[in-house]
C-alpha cells in the first residue's frame, strides 16, 4: 500500500507534464514536425520496438522477436559500451594498481596522464577516424578513452588510501608481496575502484552515442541522427527515451554489482 502511494506521488509530475504536452499538441500550439505529441512518440516507439516483418518459416521465435530495429540498435550500442569499457578499464586497472602502489612508477606515468586526462574523448574523433576508419573500431577506441581515466584515477586513489593497519596485520601473518597485493590491497581498494567503474561506464555511455553519430550505421546514436534527416521528430524522441532507459538499466546493473561486491563494506545500507 505504502509502495503504491509512493509510486503515485513520484508519478504525479511526469504525468501532469505529459498531459499538458499532449493537450498543447492537440490544440495545435506547436507543429507536429517540430514537437510531436507524446501519444505519437509512444506509437512510434512501439512500432520501432516490434519486428518489421512477419515471422518467417523456420525462423526461431527469439530471433524474430529481436529483429525489430530498436532492439537491434540497443544491442549494438550496449555491445560497443561493454567492449570499449573492457578495453579501457582493462588497461586502466593494472596501470592504476602499479601507479598507486609504487611511487616511482607513479612519478614516471603521472605527467603524461595529467596531460591526456583533460582532453575530452570527443576531441579524439578526427584521430579515431584517421586511425581506425569506419565501423566499430573507432567507437571502441573513443569509449575506451572515456572509461580509462575515471577507472585509472580512482584505482590510484584506492590503492593509496589503504589503511596501514591492514598492511601491518597482513605482514604480521607472514603475507608475501604478491598475496599482499591480490588479497589485501586490491580488496581494500575496491570501494574506490568500483566508484571509478560506475563513473567510467557513465562516460562510456555518453561517448557511445556520440561515436555512433560519426562512423557506423546502427545503434541508438546513429538512429536518432538518421531520423533527423527525415524530420522524424517522433522517432528522435523515441530513440532518446530508449537511450535513457538503457542508461538507467546499465547504471542499475552496475549499482547492483557494487552492492554485491561491497556487501562487507561499512558505509553501505542494504
Amino acid at each position: 500500500m505504502r509502495k503504491i502511494k509512493d509510486f503515485a506521488h513520484g508519478a504525479l509530475v511526469p504525468v501532469l507534464v505529459l498531459i499538458l504536452w499532449e493537450a498543447c499538441s492537440r490544440a495545435g500550439l506547436f507543429s507536429a514536425v517540430v514537437m510531436p505529441a507524446p501519444s505519437a512518440v509512444a506509437a512510434k516507439w512501439w512500432a520501432y520496438l516490434l519486428p518489421a516483418q512477419a515471422q518467417e518459416a523456420g525462423q526461431s521465435w527469439l530471433a524474430w522477436a529481436f529483429s525489430g530495429e530498436l532492439l537491434h540498435d540497443a544491442y549494438s550500442s550496449l555491445y560497443r559500451v561493454i567492449a570499449g569499457f573492457i578495453i579501457g578499464a582493462g588497461l586502466a586497472l593494472p596501470l592504476g594498481l602499479l601507479m598507486g602502489a609504487n611511487t616511482r612508477i607513479y612519478a614516471l606515468f603521472n605527467p603524461l596522464m595529467q596531460i591526456l586526462r583533460p582532453i575530452p574523448p570527443i576531441a579524439y574523433i578526427p584521430l579515431a577516424i584517421l586511425w581506425f576508419g569506419l565501423g566499430n573500431p573507432p567507437s571502441f577506441f573513443l569509449i575506451a578513452i572515456g572509461a580509462f581515466f575515471p577507472v585509472l584515477m580512482n584505482t590510484i586513489a584506492g590503492v593509496r588510501q589503504v589503511d596501514g593497519i591492514y598492511l601491518r596485520a597482513a605482514r604480521n601473518l607472514g603475507v608475501g608481496q604478491w598475496t599482499m597485493f591480490t588479497r589485501v590491497i586490491l580488496p581494500a581498494a575496491t570501494p574506490y575502484i568500483l566508484a571509478g567503474v560506475r563513473i567510467g561506464i557513465g562516460t562510456a555511455f555518453i561517448v557511445v552515442i556520440v561515436s555512433e553519430m560519426i562512423a557506423v550505421n546502427d545503434g541508438l546514436g546513429f538512429r536518432i541522427l538518421e531520423a533527423r534527416e527525415f524530420m522524424w521528430s517522433d522517432k528522435i524522441i523515441a530513440g532518446m527515451i530508449t537511450i535513457g532507459l538503457l542508461g538507467l538499466a546499465i547504471d542499475t546493473a552496475v549499482s547492483r554489482l557494487n552492492n554485491h561486491l561491497l556487501r562487507w563494506h561499512r558505509g553501505l545500507e542494504h
Binding site: I165, Y166, R168, A169, N172, G174, P187, A188, T190
Partner: peptide
Amino acid sequence: PGPDRGMVFQEYALFPW
C-alpha cells in the same frame, strides 16, 4: 614481522572484506 609472533591490535585490524 612474522607469524611466530602474532599480534592483536587495539583497532582489531580485521580484514573487513
